[in-house]
Amino acid sequence: MKKVLSVLLVAVLAVSLMAGCGTKGDSVTIGIGQFAEHGSLDNCREGFLAGLAEKGYVEGKNLKVDFENAQADGAIASQIANNFVANKVDLICGIATPMAQSAFGAAQDKDIPVIFTAVTDPVAAELANADRTPVGNITGTSDKLPVEMQLEMIRKVLPDAKTIGIMYSTSEVNSVSAIEEYKAVAGDYGFEIVESGISTTADIPLAADNLLGKVDCINNLTDNTVVSSLPVILEKAAAKNIPVFGSEIEQVKIGCLAAVGLDYYDLGKQTGLMAAQVLSGEKKASEINFEVIDEAAFYGNSAVASNLGITLPEDLVSSAKEMFDTISE
């Protein structure tokens, strides 16, 4: 036992020694922490690296990227953030709210700038002041949903619809605030919102059956839990011939009828450009206000439309940033 332990201990020390010996030269090291794994956040990360590359920070050349995914576990997110800080990375990028908060919490007073992205409400998350100025050595981009444009689009596609069902997880702040916003403006477009809160992925099939019995269409937020189980909802909705609207490109790709949404790749890219400014020393993170993407694009899926027997309005199709004619798995 003692031998086993001492071998283990030596191994632990050796690994931590190696981990500690990052060489720094001309190249910079950044830590990217992503809270969960799904299409939008992955796109965000790719966009982020593209933005950095545009400004001359190319991964593998003069940029070392330490990427970690917390798999939606809050304790792991904080561990990841602590590791980045301990390894003294030059900058931390936190993707999605809990990861951004963990990074900010860990890097506070440690002189490591934090750039966040895909945070719906940075002010509510206390990552920025109400006037968009930074609360510390932190800035980034928000992925606030274009709620009114989405409702306007749904009205155009379904002129007779009265109720919109929205499923969300009660444990995600972003979704809760999005629901509030939908409820506040839905009346202006003649809709009534039927919400259905869930706690875990396991609740989704039952909640979907229940919701589909009550609504004319379903609208999807960027809720991490719901999005990761979207295929389940899509299948059930298709069986009942009820259209499902998405909130961004990835969701339309896998079978939502249409979406007015952000391009997370663009969002990530915008964030990457901000990070480049910080890395080059042009500006400090504490001097940059957080940014939002004002433009939202229309995405449609014609294969889904023909399955449902719906024709997407011509003006929407012609203005689309991207139309899909297949449903990808």
Partner: peptide, 9 residues
């Protein structure tokens, strides 16, 4: 210590 409450912790 971490500066926020988060249900997933």
């Amino acid at each position: 210590k971490s500066g926020f409450f988060e249900i997933s912790t």
